[in-house]
Simulated scan of single mutants.
Amino acid sequence: MGYFIPKDTQVFVNTWAIGRDPDAWDEPLVFKPERFCDCDNKSYKTDYKGQHYEFIPFGAGRRMCAGVPLAHRILHLVLGSLLHRFDWELDSNVTPLTMDMKDNLGITMRKFEPLLAVPKLVVGS
């Protein structure tokens, strides 16, 4: 693209901006996890080491996050167990309409005001 990048230059990719770019994503500020699953395409296979750039926050190729394969195997089990075993409620002073959705940019992205979700044990589970 006509850029000259000197040898040994360290390049940082702004994944925060890419994830919020309306040219790259339909409604980038809306929480829609289904955008990462091409469910209509049966031949679509998620590949962390390939060209699936929706996983760019975890790196790519040989320099990807070393924990991704483990997380991919364990996350479903842990999340499923938590959802099966507990009913979840918001803290008494928070409603879905008053929930703060601002984020705090640092080395990792965090909610500016942490969300308190209260687990209630499901009786008989």
Rank of each mutant, 00 (worst) to 15 (best):
P33D: 12
K32A: 09
D40T: 10
L70Q: 09
F4P: 00
C65K: 07
P96C: 04
S81P: 01
I56F: 10
R35D: 14
R63N: 10
M64T: 02
L90A: 01
M101N: 03
D87S: 12
L29C: 09
R110D: 11
K111H: 08
A24D: 06
V118K: 11
F4H: 14
F58A: 10
Q10S: 09
L29F: 12
K49W: 10
D87T: 14
D100F: 05
R20K: 05
D91N: 00
F112K: 15
P6S: 04
L121V: 11
G59H: 11
Q10A: 15
E113K: 15
V13G: 07
E54R: 00
R62A: 15
P57N: 07
R110Y: 08
A66N: 00
N93I: 00
D91A: 03
V78T: 01
D8C: 00
Y3F: 13
F36E: 10
M64K: 07
N104S: 15
F86N: 08
P33I: 12
A24H: 08
P22L: 01
A117P: 04
N93F: 03
D26R: 05
Y44E: 12
Y53N: 04
M109P: 01
I5Y: 05
W25V: 03
I5M: 02
E34V: 09
Y44P: 01
D91R: 04
T46D: 04
K102L: 14
A24I: 14
H72A: 03
L105Q: 07
P119W: 15
V78M: 01
P57Q: 08
E54H: 05
Q51Y: 08
A117I: 12
M1P: 08
F55G: 14
V94P: 08
D40F: 08
R85D: 11
P114F: 09
L70H: 05
I56N: 15
I18L: 15
G106D: 15
L70W: 06
D87P: 04
R20C: 06
F86D: 07
F55L: 15
C39Q: 04
V94H: 13
M101W: 06
W88V: 01
S92M: 08
I74N: 01
D38A: 07
V68I: 00
K7S: 06
L77C: 02
C65E: 11
P6E: 14
G61H: 13
K111I: 02
G124C: 12
Q10C: 05
A117C: 03
Y53C: 02
Q51M: 10
E27T: 03
R35V: 10
